[in-house]
């Protein structure tokens, strides 16, 4: 395995609340090699979004270390791209101008013309050719999420952080976007961390699945997915995938504090 691009070691974090400190992360480890795709699954409220904010440098942990590309993260870095469940597009800008937003912040050597070409290329890649001049309000939820992915990638970030970006979409749109992700992965050299509640999604997209325990979260289980390269949806219905899903489901139950024995007794 090559040197890890994202390396998180023994991270602990607690939020200060009126009822005292609320620990959310306690001994979390995560290591993703360059070009890797890690999915993080776990029970609701186990601190998965806190993890994304730590990697993005929007927060620093109470203890432990976050490393990106051999450098410890101490603040925001322009080498990160983010997409959330809410696509948060700017309603007053066209789709093209929305995608180009990060280029207005990050120093770039591209000319204005090249920036626009880059944005158009990405939009074409996710199937939004011809929608460049539309307003976000004229697009469907799935299309807005596609545009949001383009914005996260336009400045060629090393790390793509996806915080449940497909969570609010209907099942068919979601599957379309999974395939779009594979198309993007084939064209763009990024390392990804995907937060999700959907185990099938994690198997379809990731090559490493990390199960977090209940709050305060630590790394409970890590699974390597052996389906390398682009995948078809049919892969989800193979024996291999079914076995993997069963293992993950079992791990989630342990994380939720519902051991299978107690379930059987009900």
């Amino acid at each position: 395995m090559t040197e890890a691009l994202i390396d998180i070691k023994g991270v602990k974090h607690a939020y200060q609340t009126q009822a005292g400190p609320l620990p959310v992360l306690d001994g979390l480890d995560l290591s993703v090699p360059e070009g890797g795709f890690a999915a993080v699954v776990g029970p609701s409220g186990c601190g998965k979004s806190t993890l994304t904010r730590l990697i993005a440098g929007l927060m620093t942990p109470d203890a432990g270390e976050v490393w990106l590309h051999g450098q410890q993260v101490r603040g925001p870095k322009s080498t990160v791209g983010m997409a959330f469940q809410n696509p948060v597009l700017l309603e007053w800008r066209s789709i093209l101008k929305n995608v180009m937003l990060p280029l207005e912040i990050v120093p770039t050597r591209l000319s204005r013309r090249q920036q626009e070409d880059r944005a158009r290329k990405l939009l074409a890649l996710v199937g939004l050719e011809g929608f460049e001049d539309k307003r976000p309000s004229e697009l469907s939820g799935g299309m807005r999420q596609r545009a949001s992915l383009c914005r996260a990638l336009v400045h060629q970030p090393e790390v793509l952080i996806l915080d449940e970006p497909f969570g609010a979409l209907d099942a068919f749109t979601r599957e379309d976007l999974w395939q779009t992700m594979h198309r993007l992965k084939a064209e763009e050299p990024f390392t990804a961390v995907l937060i999700t509640h959907d185990l099938r999604e994690s198997i379809f997209l990731a090559d490493e699945i990390v199960v977090l325990s209940g709050r305060p979260a630590h790394t409970q289980y890590v699974m390597d997915v052996h389906l390398k390269g682009p995948r078809d949806l049919e892969h989800l219905y193979t024996r291999e995938s079914a076995d993997a899903l069963n293992i993950l489901r079992h791990q989630i139950q342990i994380a939720q504090g519902r051991a299978p024995e107690t379930e059987a007794a009900e």
Partner: peptide, 18 residues
């Protein structure tokens, strides 16, 4: 303002003014 709007720019190192 939803925090995600802020995070999109803050994660790229943008200032509060931006």
């Amino acid at each position: 303002l939803e925090p995600e709007y802020r995070d999109i720019l803050r994660s790229l190192g943008a200032s509060q003014i931006t």
